[in-house]
Design a protein around this nucleic acid. Structure first.
Lengths: 177, 177
DNA sequence: GTTTGCATGTAAACGGTTACATGATTGG
DNA sequence: CCAATCATGTAACCGTTTACATGCAAAC
């Protein structure tokens, strides 16, 4: 899912500025599955406007750049739905942590433990974040996705806590340094 | 983790050609967390050679391009380890499926069911793949990672099977088409 | 007879991030 | 006083994918 499509999706939930779209990615629990930078959001919104999938109204502000509030158009909405009707691209996960774990035997034990600790607390944080922003009032999809995230994070924590020893307990890790 | 680093990592396990490295990504259970195309592997290997992190020997073949077998050098090895010692970039997951689920209420129920079915069988396949390529003989890291993958996939399947109704049961989905 | 496997590589296109430019206001 | 929030945008760069080019051998 490219930034264009993600922007359209967010705009189906209501009007927003580029700045707000970025915030939604970070704060509202979407952040676990999508993210994007200003450098990609603003141009995407411009192109979507040119193509007629969104419309803009400028709200003048004193001592700040004008707020440009974007709304999805009917064409944008059906374009968005169409994109959900055609075959979805596959998931891609890139986990430097998991990759590193493959080579645990090349690293000092302390480094491996450090990585596992860091990863656990990262996941704990994400889980906490998910629990804070409760989606009870939001569309069914949001609840489902939020539950999905929770299930995955809990599984990861369980696994790491009960299996970390296997990768930390080793005799000699001469390799590094 | 960029393709360069991934190549180095694979070469710590033994010599390989560009072609074989690609195969390893696909077949050997690494595939769940990393992948790369020829278009990135071959140039990466060339650059690593220039920089002295790997060495090549050409094995002539009849009626085929020469096999170029790459080996990691001592410098490559310590470079690789160094890259695992510095702070790891965060994981990134992009899941078009999960994204689509956020907007289940805009889609016909049949499409949502179809997506869930497709996703479930995709995950089932990955799980089966993981179970086939058993890593019993491989380094501890491989077993750990393989267990990690299994844990995540199982959690996903459990969640989808027990919660799919929440997103499929709805009265009226006029939106689409 | 067509697909799959072996085997290497290049070039263009793509999608995205990072850094830069600008600048007032509010909260700690 | 400094950091964060609000607010938009551009340009250079980067890593990767996709498509192309080449071509035989074996399996189905």
């Amino acid at each position: 899912m490219d930034v264009r499509t993600i922007c359209l999706g967010i705009l189906t939930r209501g009007d927003a500025t580029g700045y707000e779209i970025k915030k939604l990615f970070e704060d509202d629990g979407y952040q676990h599955f999508v993210e994007a930078s200003f450098g990609s959001i603003y141009p995407a919104l411009q192109r979507l406007t040119e193509e007629g999938y969104v419309s803009v109204r400028s709200e003048a502000q004193e001592k700040r750049p004008d707020r440009k509030v974007y709304s999805i158009t009917p064409q944008g909405r059906s374009q968005f739905i169409a994109s959900l009707l055609k075959p979805l691209p596959e998931d891609r996960h890139r986990s430097p942590f998991v990759f590193a774990m493959l080579f645990a035997d090349l690293l000092p034990q302390s480094r491996v433990s450090g990585m596992v600790d860091a990863y656990i607390s990262q996941v704990e944080q994400k889980l906490a974040h998910l629990n804070q922003h409760d989606s009870a009032s939001k569309p069914e999809g949001d609840k489902f996705v939020s539950g999905f995230g929770r299930a995955v994070y809990v599984a990861i924590l369980d696994y790491l806590r009960s299996h970390r020893a296997e990768i930390e307990t080793r005799l000699a890790a001469e390799a590094a340094e």
